[in-house]
Amino acid sequence: MAMSSLWWTAILLLALTVSMFSGAPTYQDFLQRHMDFPRTPSSDDNNYCNVMMMQRGMSFPGRCVTHNTFVHTEPADLTSVCTNQPDDSLCTSGQHFPVTVCNLIRSHPTCAYSGNQFNHRVRVKCAGDLPVVLDSTFQ
């Protein structure tokens, strides 16, 4: 697997620190679904999406999430967006970050994605001073 175990340890530790917030989705979900830094090496953008959607639990045979965006920056760059923001608020990064947008193009025989890289601003939903949902990314 391309994911380093160090990364997963980091996610686990963060999950423990944010377990005070009992709603869902959580910051841990946000990290798992939307953060990939440094960008996992891949032969091409489509394969990046096919592999990452599988690794992060969003693609199983007959069960494909239709759309997902991965942001390639330090998670701290996005947590700072939510600092001192009220729960449930939508906050947008001032900075642009490299992102990969994955879109489902076929679900049979396996989930197949088309991947595209952009440099986008990122809008997130905050809760407990942390991003929990990626609302959208745009120029």
Partner: peptide
């Protein structure tokens, strides 16, 4: 399928 929808503890 309710992917990436925000909800609070009650819904959870």
């Amino acid at each position: 399928i309710l992917y990436d929808i925000f909800w609070g503890p009650e819904v959870n």
